[in-house]
Design a protein around this nucleic acid. Structure first.
Lengths: 340, 340
DNA sequence: CTGTTAGCGCTTTCAG
DNA sequence: CTGAAAGCGCTAACAG
């Protein structure tokens, strides 16, 4: 029962002119009679004409669609990155399709296939933490579809990449803990396969060394996810040691919050007995008691810059050098850590 | 420099047969020689053939694209709803385009125009809280494009709708406060234009009446947003009254958390002096001290059901009756409220 | 200034 | 069982 949309041919027929003339009239073509042009434009408005983008895309061999693959969107981090991405692409008339891998390698592969089938003009991907084989990503590269990898690295894939300097962020956090008097600093690390986990771990280790502190393997415990619940087990283990830590650098705010909860329940004081620092600056973090000291990542800028690079790549005439961009995080000192 | 994708004509040429035969072979057409079919399928695989969906869509006059418009995606509520939506549509091969109005009427209108221009097959919309004129939505209806409105109502628009029973949720919460001994229950209400605000307010008022409690207009204060920061001012005003409330029902978890923060800073005890209840069950809420009592909404189901209804509408042969579905919320009693 | 033609990739009659 | 032709909506030569 759908009323058919007016086409260029409808207008042409009604005005007894050819479709191409209509097309020209609608596009401010230089060679066109002002009168016919006016007539066409008027009728187009009257019929509520809108060009059929499908037809255009078919003609131009592009889809005007960008495929974004993120592990999930319910976390603040990725939803904020998406804001940055949409902020660039929406005004440009691109359709941004957002897909979630749910941290599953299989789902990620599946999504890539689907998005390649619909022929997206470009990809923006932050891989799942299961992703250690990069065949699918290589397939994208081999198909000459522009791809920008952001936040999480895939070593060996030669594409544009945008990251946050995780190492710096972690170093700052742990260095701060050390300088504020912590002597036994633990780390609740992220999943080992993740590039971000590795860099934060390195930052942690280097900050300890820099401050002439011993490294205690027992004090490095991985979490299995990024929510408060995933911080519970690791912190319980830490609190069971005869000598418990007096500082904890958590992989992100989520697990930091889970950890704080357990610590407080045990009657241990934050930050007097244990300082806690997270990563991400989730909007909730400053409302906990004490408010969580954290490493703020420029999420919006991360999305925006990745999008901008992809857009350049899509529209460039001749191939330019690959880009590797790094954004800088910032330590936000709040109540969960002692003063230096 | 992009290598062209193989088309049906490429296959036809290589095999010296016609494109139509190739098409048939690829679609298990009954009238087709087994041999040619095998040859075609083999070559298709070899050339890594994928049908051009643009061409198909042009032919079928559909786009396989669903437009989802939400106020924002950084809140847990809407991102969880989106999960439900994608869970239905992705396996069906639809492209789900997610757009954010940022609670702006102008942006919402703009997005609708864009999505209509790309001819989405259907809309899933939760309007901004500024949206009080429904011309654009009517335009969608008039264009016979299926539309499902969810979570936030637009009275007067005749389309499929899926809501949560906000009234029930609010009533339960406030009734619980009353039964647990609160005598001066305040409400931090949502923006007045929002249907959900109105229903929660009604639930609040009715629960007070039901419990024979006076209604104090001073104790109903609207917030200007949904984040913790938006709970600060309202709760400050409440705490400045000579007789402060002993129970607060907040529009959502965000403002409840902001409110709790102020209350604790003043040295007022939760729940002994003031009980606090939120709405939404944000994943962080149970990690605050005390953990936040809240009204859990079936977010995922909300998205899933809305999507299912839209999908039915898109694919139905003949128009069926409009649907109005209501899902039920559940009060989760935690530490921020006293025992009954 | 305007019409004709061809074609983007695919399916679907209609003839063989 | 297979091919030719038409057409989805649009644009871009190429002629006038």
């Amino acid at each position: 029962m759908k009323k058919k949309r007016a086409t260029i041919t409808d207008i042409a027929r009604e005005l007894n002119i050819s479709p191409s003339t209509v097309s020209r009239a609608l596009h401010d073509h230089p060679a066109i009679n002002v009168k016919t042009k006016k007539a066409v434009v008027a009728l187009a408005k009257k019929l509520n004409y809108h060009p059929n983008l499908q037809a255009l895309n078919l003609l131009r061999k592009r889809t005007n669609t960008i495929g974004v693959i993120v592990p999930e969107i319910t976390s603040y981090f990725f939803s904020a990155v998406i804001n940055g991405i949409q902020h660039l692409f929406n005004p440009l008339g691109y359709n941004v399709i957002i897909a979630q891998s749910n941290e599953s390698f299989a789902e990620e592969c599946q999504i890539i296939d689907t998005l390649m089938a619909i022929q997206v003009d470009g990809f923006l991907i932050s891989p799942s933490f299961q992703t250690t084989r990069y065949d699918k990503l290589k397939k994208i590269v081999d198909s000459h579809i522009p791809l920008v990898i952001f936040d999480r690295d895939c070593a060996g894939i030669k594409v544009d990449k945008v990251f946050v300097d995780e190492y710096q962020g972690a170093f700052q956090a742990v260095d701060y803990l050390a300088k504020s008097g912590c002597r036994r600093i633990a780390h609740i690390a992220g999943p080992a396969s993740l590039s971000t986990s590795k860099h934060r771990l390195r930052g942690y280790l280097d900050a300890l060394r820099e401050n002439n502190m011993d490294i205690n393997e027992d004090f490095i415990i991985s979490c299995k996810g990024f929510l408060p619940e995933h911080g519970i087990k690791p912190v319980r283990r830490l609190l069971n040691f005869p000598e418990i830590p007096d500082g904890i650098f958590a992989f992100n705010d989520g697990v930091a919050i889970g950890a704080m909860s357990v610590i407080k329940d045990k009657g241990i004081r934050i930050p007097e007995d244990i300082s806690v620092i997270g990563f991400d600056d989730d909007p909730h973090s400053s409302y906990f008691k004490p408010s969580l000291t954290t490493v703020m990542q420029p999420t919006y800028e991360l999305g925006l810059l990745s999008a901008r690079i992809l857009n350049n790549r899509i529209n460039e005439e001749s191939p330019s050098a690959l880009r590797l961009e790094t954004l800088f995080p910032e330590l936000l000192v709040r109540g969960s850590s002692r003063k230096k």
